[in-house]
Design a protein around this nucleic acid. Structure first.
Lengths: 297, 297
DNA sequence: ACAAAAGTGTTCGTCTTACACCCATGC
DNA sequence: GCATGGGTGTAAGACGAACACTTTTGT
């Protein structure tokens, strides 16, 4: 095995926080890009290397981190100088002093993913998806669009974010696609990102939306103390969907995910809410415990 | 970014088939090892490279493949000549002509993972786990063992296979552990594998057990036609647990995962069973559809 | 007084679990 | 005839979805 089999390896971070909207951390400059850097010999592990790069490039110290996916298709090569492998990670934090300049909203990146409002972006997409479906002889495209985008009376599933991005990419409905048709305004198609960073973010979105349902990861995005309303708003922001208030509260409380601090908060107007804190012990105590996504309000 | 940041990259395959027992494909020789080889420039993608290596080393053409995890801790270095990155994949097949020599049973590798029999291996492990728990001042080890191994009246969760392996590794109860205590006979601790290949297999076991519950992946392990009894036996083999017969059948049939072929089979003695085939269309039609693991019989 | 958000109680329906039983074949 | 696995119906119960309503603050 000669040195010629060696490959450049890069670590890429999808760091998410929720501040009004769910947001992804970018480094400065355009096109938008994620914190990233090569894996170096002095990095003890890839996680350690990733933390180092994120801190160096953005000043942020990461808490929760998990591996996302490793990308290495040959056609990702950027400059012909051999292949590049990217190992991507998902990181979660909450923001103490929010300088949001580098924190790009998910829904600026993927406007169609927010189903809480009128779903305008999704509606704008639909005719172009239909057109793409028409081009093919078989109905595979139709079925695929139907499932991923919840068309024809099907259900919209938040965790299919990556599949939706892939459909749009193949259909030439995002600018970075090789078949880009330029039929969509930027408010609908979303912005370019460096290389395939937007795909990597989509992978993170899908993973987080899926995981939030069976593991208590939301709390990594919350401050030490929070109200149930804030917690629910955070879940809704991530899912891009409303959830049923009463059921949400019951699930959270009866699963013993949180405990009261005794304090209250009267920030948002209306009756003051009790404050809670995450019972971090349950990460050890139980293997399960997520926040289901009951249907809209 | 100089050439010094380049890193050797290896592809590793965990290929699973069920023939009586769930089995993992190994290449010849001892210690046991998984099919693997460096990622080469002429590989179009990592998946393609993986398929090439598996076919070259074992003659098997892979069907279903998904990425598992990427390992790169510095202390994995094997010969001091720089770091090695291993990108692991899970592959699923069924065996036409079973020459089982290279197909090692999961439960030879992880004897404690089979809960269908008396659970003898697990019982043999328990006192040594308790001893390890006693060594610590805090009760974190106790909680961790309790959750992962289903002690103290807790539930045994098949999909925690990786966590269980990690506990045993840290507790020095598997031979490859740096703290190996040599208190267990080989029938309980299982055999060595090359490098950290046993950890990689454990990752695959955990992933498959988890995935089988929410995605119809069992069928990748089945022949084109099968009886519901055979399907159930396959699920039970993978989960290492019995499932409730009637509920299993209802789930499979009402989810429209299968359709009758019209034929019957009278292989196993008793009344001949109807033959079914997987409705591969539902992979497109629906995003969901797994085989839940209802509790034992 | 009214808006706005917190918080409670209860009903309805579906999906899971479990039990009991009948059927068709080989030996 | 009996052992063995295939196959069916139905009742009990847990859990999620939904609705209606009360409480407590700020303006």
């Amino acid at each position: 095995m000669a040195r010629s089999d060696a490959v450049r390896t890069e670590l890429v971070a999808v760091v998410v926080a929720v501040e009004g909207m769910p947001r992804v951390l970018t480094t400065s400059g355009y096109p938008l890009q994620l914190p990233a850097g090569p894996l170096r010999d002095d990095h003890r592990s890839m996680q350690a290397g990733l933390r180092a790069w994120v801190e160096e490039q953005t000043g942020l110290r990461l808490g929760y981190v998990e591996q996302l996916y490793t990308f290495a298709d040959r056609d990702r090569a950027r400059d012909g100088s051999g292949r590049m492998i990217s190992v991507s990670y998902l990181g979660l934090t909450w923001l103490v002093n929010a300088d949001l300049e580098r924190w790009v909203s998910w829904y600026d990146l993927f406007p169609w993913e927010d189903q809480r409002d009128d779903g305008a972006a999704r509606a704008a997409l639909e005719p172009h998806l239909r057109a793409w479906v028409e081009e093919a002889e078989t109905d595979r495209r139709a079925v695929r669009c139907g499932v991923t985008f919840g068309l024809d009376g099907r259900e919209w599933l938040p965790e299919l974010a990556l599949q939706r991005y892939e459909v749009l990419y193949e259909a030439g409905l995002v600018p970075e696609s090789p078949d880009w048709r330029a039929v969509l305004p930027p408010e609908v198609s979303g912005p370019w990102m460096l290389h395939d960073h937007r795909r990597i973010v989509a992978t993170g979105v899908a993973r987080l939306r899926a995981k939030i349902q069976y593991r208590p990861v939301v709390f990594e995005l919350m401050p030490p103390e929070f109200t149930l309303g804030q917690l629910q708003a955070c879940v809704e922001a991530i899912a891009g969907q409303h959830v049923h208030k009463q059921n949400f509260r019951r699930i959270v409380e009866q699963q013993l995910l949180v405990e009261e601090t005794g304090g209250t908060s009267s920030e948002t107007g209306g009756r003051p809410a009790r404050l809670f804190r995450f019972r971090r012990e349950i990460l050890d105590e139980r293997a399960a415990g997520g926040t289901k996504l009951p249907r809209g309000r």
